[in-house]
């Protein structure tokens, strides 16, 4: 085993540690929002944890570059790890942002969440698939994620048009729009992760 492999595997471990945390943060935040439960503290804790690990990953990357002078696939992998870790960190951050709005909106349980549930289901699938693509270095899976992102974007735009033209309840519209907006952002980061997987496997 090369010395750099030892270092890289500890980098990979950090990412594997991050994913469940970010997954949990996003699920918790969306559930809490639509059920109007204040989970701000709990999600904040997760987001902070993710931020800490992301910081750790950056430090580790710098150290690996300084100590082992990675080249070729090693270098691509390390750069991609930075990208992916940032994505996980952003997941946590958006989850936290969602929960901060809960108390502001008050009770939104009775709104119609059907479209949002559909979009959230899709985004969470993208998160899961992109992680799986990373773990298995599966480029076809990664390409699928990228394709799915178009769907989310389309959903987002459709919904936006619907709100602008329609005249529903303002509170419900805004609440759903907010969540939709964050889901779209999260989907973007899942796409970035999928692109990183392509970068690892095929290069720039």
């Amino acid at each position: 085993m090369r010395l750099i492999d030892i270092a890289i595997s500890s980098l990979t471990d950090k990412l594997k540690e991050m994913y469940p945390l970010s997954e949990k943060a996003v699920s918790l935040a969306i559930e809490a929002f639509r059920n109007s439960v204040d989970l701000n503290a709990e999600v904040y804790h997760l987001a902070e944890q993710l931020r800490g690990i992301h910081h750790e990953v950056s430090r580790l990357m710098t150290e690996i570059i300084a100590r082992f002078q990675p080249v070729a696939s090693d270098l691509r992998y390390i750069r991609a790890c930075g990208e992916i870790s940032y994505g996980f960190y952003r997941y946590g951050r958006y989850a936290y942002d969602i929960t901060t709005a809960i108390s502001l909106f008050g009770d939104v349980k009775s709104c119609d969440w059907e479209k949002i549930d559909k979009a959230s289901e899709q985004v969470r699938t993208m998160m899961k698939m992109s992680m799986e693509a990373f773990e298995k270095r599966d480029i076809s899976l990664a390409r699928e994620v990228i394709k799915m992102d178009d769907g989310i974007d389309r959903l987002y735009r459709e919904y936006l048009r619907e709100i602008i033209t329609g005249n529903g309840d303002k509170r419900c519209d805004l609440a759903r729009l907010l969540v939709m907006r964050y889901l779209e952002r999260i989907g973007d980061h899942a796409t970035a992760i999928a692109e990183s997987v392509l970068f690892i496997v095929t290069g720039p």
């Binding site: 010395l3 595997s9 500890s10 430090r59 690996i64 100590r67």
Partner: peptide
């Protein structure tokens, strides 16, 4: 088996 935690991780930075 190599204990990689000792190679690079925060426990050897300080």
């Amino acid at each position: 088996e190599i204990d990689y935690k000792k190679v690079v991780s925060k426990d050897v930075t300080d």
